[in-house]
Amino acid sequence: MLWFIIIAAVIALDQYTKYLALTRLVNYDTIPLIENVFHLTFVKNRGAAFGILQNQKWFFIVVTGAIMIGIIYYIYREKPESKLLMISLSMILGGAVGNLIDRIRYSYVVDFFDFTLINFPVFNVADSFVVVGTIFLSYYLLFKYDAKKDEA
């Protein structure tokens, strides 16, 4: 049940912040929170990270759907006991759903966090959860996963 709560919370937070971006940032070029370091900048992202694969809406919908099905299938089939694994998969799934909602609803993903100091791509809450969830998953697979236990 924990995984469902995390997924719902990630989606709710992501969609709420995107709503705020759509209603409050759309008329501004950028709003500096820390001048020349961190801004809020409304961006319609029709591609993936770093703007690659622009205007490939259906490709992203299909790939995201396949990832979601794979994660849900794994959770139901394997019923993993590791909280770290469940949290990481839930964060990834919640972030994926958050961006999928945008792609279906608007044909683009709403991005607004802008680290201008390092010229990093503008991103959103869903992206953040996917990245942090992937870091947690990588940590789990590298340091916590015991392949010998699965062989028994």
Rank of each mutant, 00 (worst) to 15 (best):
L2V: 10
L2R: 12
W3F: 09
I5F: 13
I6R: 00
I7P: 00
I7N: 00
A8W: 01
A8P: 01
A9M: 08
V10E: 01
V10L: 03
I11F: 04
A12Q: 00
L13I: 09
L13V: 06
D14I: 05
Q15T: 09
Q15C: 06
Q15W: 04
T17A: 10
T17Y: 05
T17M: 13
T17P: 02
K18Y: 04
K18I: 10
K18E: 04
Y19A: 07
A21V: 10
A21Y: 03
A21R: 04
A21P: 06
L22P: 02
L22W: 02
T23G: 09
L25H: 03
L25S: 04
L25F: 03
V26H: 04
N27S: 14
N27K: 12
Y28E: 12
T30E: 12
I31H: 05
I31R: 04
I31T: 08
I31M: 10
P32M: 08
P32C: 11
L33N: 12
L33W: 14
V37C: 11
V37E: 11
H39L: 08
H39R: 12
L40E: 11
L40Q: 10
L40M: 14
T41K: 10
F42R: 01
F42A: 04
V43H: 04
K44E: 15
K44C: 04
G47C: 13
A48H: 06
A48N: 08
G51K: 11
Q54S: 14
Q56R: 13
K57R: 15
W58L: 12
W58R: 02
V63P: 01
V63H: 03
V63W: 01
V63I: 15
T64E: 05
G65D: 05
A66P: 02
I67K: 00
G70Q: 09
G70V: 09
I71N: 03
I71S: 03
I72F: 10
Y73C: 09
I75P: 02
I75G: 03
I75L: 15
R77P: 01
E78N: 14
E78T: 14
K79G: 10
E81D: 15
E81M: 12
S82W: 11
S82G: 09
L84T: 12
M86S: 12
M86E: 08
M86K: 15
I87H: 01
M91N: 02
M91T: 00
G94E: 06
G94S: 11
G95H: 05
A96C: 11
G98R: 06
N99W: 06
L100A: 08
I101S: 02
D102L: 08
D102G: 07
R103N: 07
I104G: 02
I104F: 13
Y108A: 03
V109E: 01
V110R: 01
V110S: 02
D111Q: 07
D111L: 07
D111R: 04
D111V: 07
T116K: 12
N119C: 05
F120I: 08
F120E: 09
P121E: 11
P121Y: 09
P121I: 06
V122L: 08
V130T: 07
V130I: 15
V132T: 13
G133D: 07
G133K: 02
G133P: 06
F136V: 03
L137I: 07
S138R: 10
Y139R: 11
Y139S: 10
Y139C: 13
Y140C: 05
L142A: 14
L142I: 13
L142E: 07
L142G: 05
K144T: 10
K144L: 14
D146W: 05
K149Q: 13
K149H: 07
K149D: 13
A152L: 14
A152G: 11
A152D: 11
